[in-house]
């Protein structure tokens, strides 16, 4: 399981492949969804309901404010809607991925009040008034977050499907102080599965990003 690739500070990788991947990565990194981000919140009248309100037994929709990436969004939702579905289907923030929808893969990882959680097991109503950060909220304008940049630099992905979850998890992993060694990174990133098996490059990317983030702080 030890990585075979270069683990030096600039992860040797085929640079033409890197060029090619860069555009893909931008998608994973959420840059291309900047447009919906800037858009006003979807008016609640236009929001589809997953189930009709059942007034007979007092069931029905709940009005909530979701604070996503610094914007407050008003939603009128069935309490069954998960944070993952609210983000993807209601707020058009499709950077967060649905893998298993059962808490086993980590593709749906977002930050809730700064801590990494699984949005597929979080009910949207329970995230109300809390700070949600998704992959779309990580970059500062055109400037990628160091973890995003490191994933591109190290080819920390192949198909890219697990990548938004990996990146959100990695940012938290570093902030928690769990990136001290390769072993520690692997242990604390074990909740993010990658079917393409990009693990060695993901670990490299986290090491590089951690060093950079540490440098920036001190």
């Amino acid at each position: 399981m030890e990585q075979a690739t270069d683990s030096g500070p600039d992860c040797e990788g085929g640079s033409s492949r890197r060029q090619f991947i860069r555009s893909l990565a931008a998608i994973s990194a959420g840059l291309t969804v900047a447009a919906p981000l800037g858009r006003a919140a979807i008016p609640e009248e236009s929001i589809p309901q997953t189930a009709p309100p059942n007034s007979g037994s007092g069931l029905g929709l709940v009005r909530i404010n979701l604070k996503v990436n610094g914007n407050t969004r008003r939603l009128f939702i069935d309490p069954r809607v998960t944070l993952l579905d609210a983000l993807r289907d209601r707020l058009e923030l499709t950077g967060t991925k649905k893998g298993c929808d059962r808490g086993t893969c980590g593709a749906c990882t977002v930050h809730l009040d700064g801590r990494r959680v699984l949005s597929c097991l979080t009910l949207a109503v329970m995230a109300k008034e809390r700070e949600v950060t998704t992959i779309e909220g990580l970059a500062k304008g055109d400037e990628l977050h160091p973890v995003q940049a490191a994933f591109i630099e190290c080819d920390g992905f192949q198909c890219g499907y697990c990548t938004p979850g990996q990146i959100m998890s990695a940012v938290a992993c570093i902030n928690e102080g769990h990136s001290g060694s390769e072993r520690e990174i692997r242990e604390f990133m074990s909740g993010n599965l990658c079917r393409c098996g990009a693990y060695p490059n993901i670990v490299d990317a986290i090491k590089i990003a951690a060093a950079k983030m540490k440098g920036e702080v001190s």
């Binding site: 980590g106 990882t109 801590r115 990494r116 959680v117 979080t122 928690e176 769990h178 074990s190 909740g191």
Partner: peptide, 9 residues
């Protein structure tokens, strides 16, 4: 137990 994300929840 579980993963870092699940332990946070």
């Amino acid at each position: 137990s579980a993963s870092a994300q699940i332990r946070n929840m």
